[in-house]
Design a protein around this nucleic acid. Sequence first.
DNA 1: TTCAAAATTCAAAACGTTTTAAATCTCATT
DNA 2: AATGAGATTTAAAACGTTTTGAATTTTGAA
Lengths: 343, 343
Amino acid sequence: MATLKDISAELGLSVATVSRALNGFPEVNQKTRDKVQEAAERLGYRPNRVAQRLVTGRSGMVGLIVKIKPDMSADQTFFEVLTGLTAGLAARDTELVLAVDQGEDAVAPYRRMIEKNILDGFILNEPVVDDPRVAFLLERKMPFVLHGTDRDDPPYPFYRIDNQKVAADAVDLLGHLGHRRIALINGRLRHHYAHERLEGFLKAMGRHGLSADLVSTENVVGSDAYMSALELLGLPDAPTAFVCASTPLADGVCRAIRDKGLRMPEDVSVVAHDDAMPLTKAVKFDPALTVTRSPLRDACEPLANMLMDHLNGTPTADLQVTLTAELIVRGSTGPAPKRGITV
Amino acid sequence: MATLKDISAELGLSVATVSRALNGFPEVNQKTRDKVQEAAERLGYRPNRVAQRLVTGRSGMVGLIVKIKPDMSADQTFFEVLTGLTAGLAARDTELVLAVDQGEDAVAPYRRMIEKNILDGFILNEPVVDDPRVAFLLERKMPFVLHGTDRDDPPYPFYRIDNQKVAADAVDLLGHLGHRRIALINGRLRHHYAHERLEGFLKAMGRHGLSADLVSTENVVGSDAYMSALELLGLPDAPTAFVCASTPLADGVCRAIRDKGLRMPEDVSVVAHDDAMPLTKAVKFDPALTVTRSPLRDACEPLANMLMDHLNGTPTADLQVTLTAELIVRGSTGPAPKRGITV
DNA sequence: TTCAAAATTCAAAACGTTTTAAATCTCATT
DNA sequence: AATGAGATTTAAAACGTTTTGAATTTTGAA
């Protein structure tokens, strides 16, 4: 493999000039630059990244630690995330190193990777409230970006959606349609996003002068949501609308509505948040699902770029991005039924 | 971050001695070694891998390029592979770098990674016949190990199962049970393993003096196998037994058998090869599936170790492993029915 | 023609480790 | 006390790059 020295010997130039010529420094003569580039091409020169990294102090690698949950099998989502991240990182000449979290202590794999001393930073996802990984990385001063947040006023770079607004938009839509009894089918409160959704829901309900007594949390999969919805629909003052934290949860809710002999949207309306995972497509629902939409895959490249910017010294304040999810009204929402429903 | 120089300054020793002490060289005085280790501990010394790699010429990273097929969603398998590989590599202080193959030319991502000049080797899987990636890596003299083979007499390290024997064992079992009309439901012949299975099937059928005219290839998913089996079962001289290349294919075959109003194993026997993927479990079949079994996840750690050995100069001949799959007889196979079946 | 300024190039240091070859130390033998 | 073998340590080179500070060449004006 040709080195800078080979090129410099070939052309009778110093290594420094060759380096600068190839790296586009302004102070090198155009003729020299041309010669150097030609020779580099001819000799098949490829910079030795290891040497570059030794001198720049960067490893050129960032870590992603994937948590393997025994119950869930990886869906296409994971590959989308992977594709997005590697694409974004490749554009900045950085590699993605993968490790596997096998359950134990959440920070253990991060500690291991840090001690190996080969990573410039991390990409974190699926934060829980006051995530211990976040605390650990902050303490060790290891750069990272978070997809989502783990607290209300985070001192680190993140890329998230406005989860309060997600819930509020859903409530506003349903409120304007005349619904008074609106239920929330939320995820696990250990996730910060679930907290935010709940808060947004409560505030919006308050603005509409509605009582927010129909709240179910800790729903993980569709069948949880199914059970929760069934129970809520059995109440004397049952909901006429559901706000769901995800499309899989909405799927469970829709099943419950059907099984109760109710129609959607005539009897009950449903709004869900849609991360646009390939498995449960909102448009595949019957009727198609009204959603707040924010494709997960859209987050990957920004995340990669933000991490690189962070490493290059961009101040944290400039790396805190909150997106607004788009509200897409489809067939699963309609005007509130004229009177209460009894089953 | 403490360096060797810091330790050497601290103790008034030379950097060389410190390095040797920490790396367990025999020529350093025990007292010195103790002092060095204590100081390293105290100062929190971690070797700078980049520097190590610059001098040793190794990057300490190997690549895995995952091919994303738009149709299939990743099953748990991928995570098992990932877990196995990272565990095996971590034990040898090596990281796994992931890249994504987005469809284009099969060798393109390998070329990209090679030109980046940061990988010591590759792990390849799912080879096709005369795999272009293999040809490319051989030509570039880039070390790799292959899970499976892409040709009959491979000049590279591999870890595979004896696919001819897989098919032969199935045929032998069925032959001894009195079956004369045995069908093969095979995968795509572009995969070398499918070739080998076919060859083993044909040879074994020949040994039993049976005509191997019931062969279906190019079955990718269960529904393909369903159609193929349906067609074969409609023939005048229909099969009384099926040999299937995988459990998902066996699932399709079983559906076809049921839909034809036939019983398993009374009317038709089924044997499949079982890579022990979590999605389609052989024991979940009714009756449980007779299989040749060879868990995919068992291959991961050996593969990682073989690649490391390969990098360390172990001759290729010592790194060509062929395992025999275990034959597990369960309820899906029984004696051939007394007379032919007509539907 | 001369000289200062600008443009360009250079030599050398630095990054943190491993490894080679040489130097020093220790200690038993003469 | 001198010798020499063995044990231990050292200085320095090497890996391939970037970068600093100095040196050289070129340019343009006086």
